[in-house]
Amino acid sequence: MNRIVQKLQEDKKLLSIYFTAGYPNLDDTETIIKTLENTGVDMIEIGLPFSDPLADGPTIQASSTAALHNGMTTTKLFEQLEGIRETVSIPLIIMGYFNPVLQFGVEAFCKKCQDIGIDGLILPDLPLAEYQEHYRATFEKYGLSTIFLITPQTSDERIREIDAASSTFIYMVSSASTTGAQSDFGNAQEAYFNRIAAMKLHHPQVVGFGISNASTFEFATLKTKGAIIGSAFIKMLTEKGIQGISNFISSIRK
């Protein structure tokens, strides 16, 4: 069974961490992944850096630029991940923009993911309709789950469509914004979380964007299966380096 599906069945709120591969140092990828698993993180999104990350705020943009400057490439990332499944068992998802995947070759990319043991892909700028028409068959052939985003502005009708196209979970963007834009949740988020919960979707939701600490994690997971921390984790890495990971994770999970 897909590792993500298995993880979603566990009776707990899931903590997922996003990091940009190649940041802070080119060769930190393996260490970051192992440390995250050892500190109790449930799922990891490995960011494939892109030169023009449209949906990202300044923090992830800067980490992507630095990672590319450090020499990160798609091929390099795959090299670093080879053998990762000998020691790491939690779900690993690659998150990135579609152009680097397209240039690597969609099928070659998917095959490489399968060989390594990647469980899913999040490609925010690959639209649902394109995915279904051109890429779904390939992604599925290599056992990759595609995770789609919904936002507070997504219509109920489209949410149902996305739910139907999903195979593991739905990435629930907490507010209509770029990553790292927000620090607190308010009434608008509460109403949104309630609306989605009331829809009783087939697939569980994991909340992302704006989760930075224990209180936002708790709030985001009241009615959902879990939450993803990205920008706040990158900020911590910038300030404290990989030595800071364990303290950061234990501060989220009280």
Partner: peptide, 22 residues
């Protein structure tokens, strides 16, 4: 340029072999 995605459109663009926009 080679075919790729820039600013929401699939078109010809100048990029590295790795798909980074130059």
């Amino acid at each position: 340029g080679k075919i790729g995605i820039i600013h929401g459109s699939k078109t010809l663009l100048m990029q590295t072999l790795d798909g980074q926009i130059t």
